[in-house]
Design a binder for these strands. Structure first.
Lengths: 340, 340
DNA sequence: GGACTGGTAGCAAACGTTTACTGTAGGGTG
DNA sequence: CACCCTACAGTAAACGTTTGCTACCAGTCC
């Protein structure tokens, strides 16, 4: 493991000079010495020790991303976006799948603190859980005390995300689109009530209904887990409950995919009998049959902007909050309401 | 940013004693001193500096995973598996999406070397590209010279994976299953010819044909990119070429999903007219209509075992190679060959 | 009573960098 | 010629740990 000391020795200079050449600082070094150092570094296959550098700076070129589960396409996209930004600066990205378990999340944050990660990006939504949030608050303070940047990409207990997505407008736009197709009874799969992002989306649904002049009906709203199984279960619950509806709007794509699968199993014609719409527009949405109508979220961009926001924080600028726009994508899973 | 020095001062002991308490080494410390140190650490919210520890050990508790693209469900699963293993040891996982670009891969490996990552897991397959492989060989040597463990999860230029999946047997089993349904003309979407893993899967296809007593026919094999667009394009090419076939076996699920989508667009009945089978069994496979028959790969386990293999390398044991078994999952996209 | 032993504790070096500070030489300026 | 400034080079301290070595103390054994 070659160190800068050996490079300096081979080049016949002090470690200071070697460091100044390698680090490409502006400090003046004679052309001859510079060349000798460069040659030596190449000959010895010298790679600087980031730990030593980090120790000195109390910060290493690493960003942690806390996600629910990297296996969830939503988060994979976001992480990729963070990576895109990071790669440009030679930063590395640490992925932390917390499964929304407060304990795991805390232990990840602690590890990131211990390695002096330059920034921590919370990709997922916060959970309304006083116990958890108190502990989280302590950790956030700790992170910031360590000089790390903290960025949220979803609403959380302590406020709005620094960089986020306009969930309310997005869902409202989808509801408007469905209403525009003649749907009057639009059910909603809302996900877990404790998840702040799910609440925002529910609010978007309500706003969409109001704007379309439709009557809210609590029996049309189903809560549950935020994944495909939750979507399937919600279908069963809705059908058991008996409310009539011709369209189903979902708080995310996984719910919609699960609902779609269950409806297909039950022999319900989509979109003939029921239109189904998702939210997030993960890449799978295009691959189902029928392809899923959804609301496109610029997830990769969200990640990249989150990274950039963090870097600006580190640079001392306090950047403005950003809400990225969404886009309704109508595909085969939605159609005009059948004339009743 | 509290250091162990402050903890020691508050506890009224030397840093050595504080370190021995915090580090939970076996070194004897009196109960009184131990308690004072613990109290001080808690009061100051002390978090050890992993950079300083790493500097001393020339190694930090971090594993890098080189993937093609974290957005590809195959790799997301593998990364999650690595995370599962790592979490148990309080290791962190760095995700590196190289897009199979040699230059990006090399720069990631260099960064991982610079931070003295304890291990690097290459999740994706190698590419038959002499230039690239020469440079990669240098980096692997560098990694090992740094004392890092190196694990491959797919075949690569320098040999078989330390922990892998039985691609040949897997595809052969699927071909056998299709043949068992009466299919005699089975086409194959093979992916990029330069990718070692694609070659293995092609070999599995050939072996499956031979074992089923079927005639190989080069016109039934389509190469292309390893994603959904590649699958769609391959369908067009096959249909333009005109060879008859009743079943389509794909070297991975993304190819199959793209093929399925294109066939649906073209109004071809799946599985009535053509059976379609994928490989990998990513979670989306269950969500398409019809649900995709595929070969289940224990991807998450692959990642976890890869991590464990790396840890054993670090511990000085030279563990045996492992080939994980696969499982054919028959779903709605495959059916008996129509009597011709 | 002296030597030894075992349990604790601390000193200080080492890991690989960066950088403030000091030093030196040479050239320009008054 | 004296002075100062600039360009370059080196010394050494500092970052926060861990750990080998030494030191102290109280028993214990002969």
């Amino acid at each position: 493991m070659t160190s800068i000391t050996e490079v300096a020795r081979l080049a016949g200079v002090s470690t200071a000079t070697a460091s100044r050449v390698i680090g490409a600082t502006g400090y003046p070094v004679s052309a001859a010495a510079r060349q000798r150092v460069l040659d030596a570094a190449l000959a010895l296959d010298y790679v600087p020790n980031a730990l030593a550098q980090g120790l000195l700076k109390s910060r290493i070129a690493v960003v942690g991303v806390i996600v629910h589960d990297i296996t969830d396409p939503y988060f994979a996209e976001v992480v990729r976006g963070v990576e895109d930004g990071a790669a440009a600066d030679a930063y590395l990205v640490i992925t932390c799948s917390s499964d929304r378990d407060p304990q795991r999340e805390n232990s990840y944050v602690r590890l990131l603190r211990s390695m002096r990660a330059a920034a921590v990006v919370f990709a997922g939504s916060g959970l309304d859980d006083p116990m958890r949030n108190e502990e989280l608050a302590r950790h956030l303070d700790g992170l910031r005390a360590n000089g790390a940047a903290v960025v949220h990409l979803s609403p959380h207990a302590f406020g709005a995300p620094e960089v986020g997505v306009d969930n309310v407008a997005g869902i409202a736009a989808m509801v408007a689109a469905l209403a525009g197709m003649g749907h009057r009874r639009i059910a909603f799969l809302a996900g877990p009530p404790a998840l702040y992002v799910a609440r925002e989306r529910l609010a978007g649904y309500r706003r969409g209904l109001v704007e379309a002049g439709l009557e809210p009906d609590a029996s049309l709203i189903q809560h549950g887990t935020f994944d495909a199984d939750g979507g399937a279960a919600a279908i069963d619950a809705l059908r058991a409950g008996g409310p009539e509806f011709t369209a189903l709007c979902c708080a995310n794509d996984l719910l919609a995919l699960g609902a779609l699968r269950r409806l297909t199993e039950l022999g319900v014609d989509v979109p003939g009998r029921i239109s189904v719409a998702g939210f997030d527009d993960i890449s799978v949405a295009r691959m189902t049959a029928p392809p899923l109508s959804s609301v496109r979220l610029p997830l990769r961009e969200l990640g990249r902007r989150g990274y950039e926001h963090a870097m600006r924080q580190l640079a001392g600028v306090a950047p403005a909050r950003i809400l990225l726009p969404t886009q309704v994508m109508l595909r085969g899973s939605t159609a005009s309401a059948a004339p009743s």
